[in-house]
Design a protein around this nucleic acid. Structure first.
Lengths: 234, 234
DNA sequence: TTGCCAAGTGTCATTGACTGCCATACTCTG
DNA sequence: CAGAGTATGGCAGTCAATGACACTTGGCAA
C-alpha cells in the first residue's frame, strides 16, 4: 500500500520503530508539529465516527465534524481528500495489516489459503486492538457503517478493487509467476474481495454478529465457492 | 430488475409488444406525452455520452448536457437520479438483458455455466444493436468510460453488487434451493461480477479490444478461477 | 536570542451537484 | 371546452470540494 494520499495513511507502528520509548500513546518521541497533526487527525476521525454512527453518514455535514473539533472546514480537506476518504482510511488500515500478514505467511501455503489466513489474522488483530476512549475496537462498527451506506459501499468496493492489483502482485511473486501474463493471481484477488463483500453484507444484516462470526461466515463462503462454480448443486 | 428508479429504466422492446405498427422507431403508437419523454430522455443520454467521451465525465457539467438538449437543469434530475445514474442506465440495460437470457437458458445447464452463457448472449446482443445515429453500439465505449472514471467505477461496482441479489435468487430457483440458507448462489453471483470487473479492467487497458475479445478474456478468467483457488500454481 | 523558511491553518470566493417549492404550461379524459 | 393530472422551468438554498491568498507557528541555524 504505498499510498501517498493527501492525508497520508494512518502511520503504522512499524513505520518508525527506531526511537526508544515509543510507548503507550506513541507520541512522545515526535516533534510538536507532527504530534499536533496526529492529534487533529485523530480528533477528526473520532468526532466524525461518533457523528456518523449517531446521525448517519449522509446526514452529517463536514461542517459539523469540523465544528466538533474546532478547526476550519478547509483544513478538513487537507487531512482527508474527501468525506469518504475519512472512512476509507480505516479500510486502508485493514489492507495494510492484511498485506503485512500476507507477507508473513509461509511460502509452503497455497496462495489462496495464505490469503485467507492473512485475512483472518489481520481482522483478528485489528478487532482486538482496544481503542483509547471507546475501549472497543472501532472496526466492526466501521464495517457496518460502510455496508449500510450506499456511498461508502461504492467507494469501498472501488478501493478493494484497486487493492487487487497489489494482492495479485504479491501472490504472483509467492508462486514465482508473472502477474502481467498469468491471470490466476487476479482471479484469486478478485474472488477474495467479492467473497469479502458478500460476507459483510450477510454479517451486517443480522446486527448481532461478532467479528469471529464474520470470519466463520467468510470461511463458509470460501468453502462453498468451488462447488458453486462447477456442476449442479443438487 | 424490478427497478423503480426515478427515471425508470430504458423501456425494453419486450415491454409493450402488443400494439401493431411498433415499427422502425417504435414511437408511433405512444401518446404524445410519453413520446416526448422518450425523446427527451434519449436526447439527454446521447448528448451526455458525447460530452463524456469528449471531455471526460468529471469535466462535464450537468449544465452543459442540459444546454445541449435545451432543457432546464432541474428537469435533468427528474429523468436521472444523478449524473452517475445516467451512465448506469446502460448498465441496467445490460443487466436486464442478462436476466432475460439467463431465464432462457436450459435447466440442464449447470448454474455458473448458464450464467456465463447468458452473459455472452447479452453482451453479444447489445453490442450488435446498431445505434440510430452513431451506427455503432454504444456499449463498448460505455464500458471503457466507466472503467476509466473512478466515480463511475465505484457506482458501477455497487450496482453490480446489488444485482447479485437477483442473480442469486434466479440461480437458486433454477437449482431448487433456498438462497436464504444456501450460500452457493451468492458465491456464484459474487464471483461472476468480480471476474467481470477484472475482465473489464484488462480489456479497457489495451484500448484496441473488440467485444469478442472481452468475452474471450472473461472466459479465460472463468477457466482459471478454480485453479486459482486451490493448491499451488506451479 | 533572533530571524528566516517551510509547514499548517484560516478566510473568502467560487463551482458544481443536487433538492424543495411554487408557478406555469402542457396533455389527457370526459 | 373544462378540469384533473403531469411535465417543466425558475429560483433559492444546502453541501462537498477547490483555488488563492494571508497569517501563524514550529524547526533550525547563525
Amino acid at each position: 500500500m504505498q499510498q501517498v494520499s493527501v492525508a497520508g495513511s494512518t502511520e503504522s507502528p512499524a513505520a518508525e520503530p527506531l526511537n526508544a520509548q515509543a510507548a503507550s500513546d506513541g507520541l512522545a518521541d515526535l516533534q510538536r508539529r507532527e504530534r499536533k497533526k496526529r492529534q487533529t487527525r485523530h480528533a477528526l476521525l473520532r468526532a466524525a465516527l461518533a457523528l456518523f454512527m449517531d446521525k448517519g453518514y449522509d446526514h452529517t455535514a463536514v461542517r459539523e465534524i469540523t465544528d466538533a473539533v474546532d478547526i476550519s472546514e478547509r483544513t478538513f480537506f487537507r487531512y482527508f481528500a474527501n468525506k469518504e476518504d475519512l472512512v476509507l482510511s480505516f479500510a486502508r488500515d485493514i489492507t495494510s495489516e492484511l498485506m503485512r500478514e500476507l507477507a508473513a505467511r509461509p511460502g509452503a501455503e497455497p496462495p489462496f489459503t495464505a490469503l485467507r489466513a492473512a485475512f483472518r489474522a489481520a481482522v483478528t488483530t485489528l478487532a482486538a486492538e482496544r481503542d483509547a476512549e471507546a475501549g472497543e475496537s472501532v472496526y466492526p462498527s466501521i464495517i457496518r457503517l460502510i455496508d449500510s451506506t450506499p456511498a461508502l459501499m461504492a467507494a469501498h468496493m472501488r478501493y478493494t478493487h484497486e487493492c487487487d492489483e497489489e494482492i495479485a502482485k504479491v501472490l504472483a511473486e509467492r508462486e514465482g509467476i508473472d502477474p502481467a501474463t498469468d491471470r490466476r493471481p487476479w482471479c484469486a484477488a478478485a474472488v477474495f474481495d467479492s467473497l469479502l463483500h458478500v460476507t459483510c453484507r450477510e454479517w451486517q444484516e443480522e446486527d448481532s454478529g461478532t467479528v469471529e462470526d464474520m470470519l466463520v461466515t467468510f470461511d463458509s463462503y470460501c468453502e462453498h465457492t468451488a462447488g458453486a462454480l462447477s456442476g449442479h448443486w443438487t
